[in-house]
Amino acid sequence: MKTPKILSYLLLSFVGLTTMVACSSDEEGDDTGGGTVSNSLHLKFKTPDWERTINCEQLDLMPMNPADGVYAVSATSASTNETFYFSYPQDSSDMNQVSNYKKYGIVSYGDNDQPFQFSQKLPDNQGSTDRLISLADNSSTYYNEVEKIEYVGHEANYSIFKVKCKYNMRTYLLSNEATIKDVSGTFHFKIRTTRN
């Protein structure tokens, strides 16, 4: 397997920061508040063997720049050892548009280079050292779908948005790539874009 583009960047730029950006170990209830994605900041996954909802209310995601015009964020959950990558437009003016509310691709773990792509790596089951790794796909069955984008404020250099998505992906087992498992879930993250 090749080294993912974003993973290489992450290792160079964010070594030692995993605990600073990790999601909380607390789980949350199902607070959907309309639509299919919870109003609480979270990441939820469901595999054939286990599922978790990770509370991300305290998650402070800083963007990296894996491709021209694209920002991406990543974090690792201390409680589950799940790691995600989510990419989106770098420019705030490209964020909150109705045309963004559609399905996008799932990409190989860490290969996010286009807006609204999602990839992840997570244990095969609770406590496992074996990992499920996302497989690239963009179809009616396997996708990341943007459900809502909301502008929530700004900082000196960034505009801040909240993004709700639901996803369904195929993954392969790291120890046996012929073993394929579906993983589905939702996430609601607070992200930063360049400020206009």
Rank of each mutant, 00 (worst) to 15 (best):
K2C: 09
K2V: 08
P4S: 05
K5E: 09
L7R: 02
L7S: 08
S8D: 11
L10Y: 12
L12G: 04
L12P: 00
S13Y: 06
V15H: 01
V15G: 04
G16L: 07
T18P: 02
T18M: 05
T18S: 07
M20S: 15
V21D: 13
V21F: 10
A22W: 12
C23L: 13
E27V: 12
E27K: 13
E27H: 12
E27F: 03
G29H: 09
D30N: 11
D30I: 14
D30C: 06
D31E: 14
D31Y: 13
G33A: 12
V37H: 10
N39I: 15
L41Y: 14
L41H: 14
F45K: 08
P48F: 04
T53C: 09
N55Q: 12
E57F: 06
Q58K: 15
Q58D: 14
L59N: 14
D60V: 04
D60K: 15
D60E: 13
M62P: 03
M62Y: 14
M64P: 00
N65P: 01
P66E: 08
A67E: 15
G69H: 04
V70N: 13
S74R: 05
A75M: 15
E82Y: 00
F86M: 03
Y88K: 00
Y88F: 02
P89A: 03
Q90L: 06
Q90W: 01
D91F: 11
S92P: 00
D94S: 13
M95R: 03
Q97A: 04
Q97Y: 11
V98N: 11
V98T: 09
N100E: 04
N100M: 10
N100S: 15
K102T: 09
K103H: 02
Y104I: 06
Y104K: 10
Y104H: 12
V107M: 05
V107D: 05
S108L: 07
Y109P: 01
D111S: 10
D111K: 00
D113I: 06
Q114E: 13
P115G: 08
F116A: 09
F116S: 07
S119W: 04
S119K: 04
Q120S: 02
K121I: 02
N125S: 15
S128P: 07
T129E: 14
R131G: 02
R131W: 10
S134I: 01
L135W: 00
A136N: 12
A136W: 04
D137C: 05
D137S: 15
D137W: 00
Y142N: 11
Y142W: 06
Y143V: 07
N144H: 05
E145D: 04
V146S: 01
I149H: 00
G153M: 09
G153R: 09
H154M: 03
A156W: 02
Y158P: 01
I160T: 11
F161Y: 15
F161K: 04
K162T: 13
K164C: 02
C165W: 03
K166P: 04
N168V: 10
M169G: 00
L173S: 14
S175V: 03
E177K: 08
A178Y: 06
I180R: 09
I180E: 00
S184P: 00
S184T: 12
H188W: 01
H188D: 08
F189T: 11
F189A: 08
I191C: 06
I191S: 06
I191W: 09
R192A: 11
T194H: 14
R195K: 15
N196W: 13
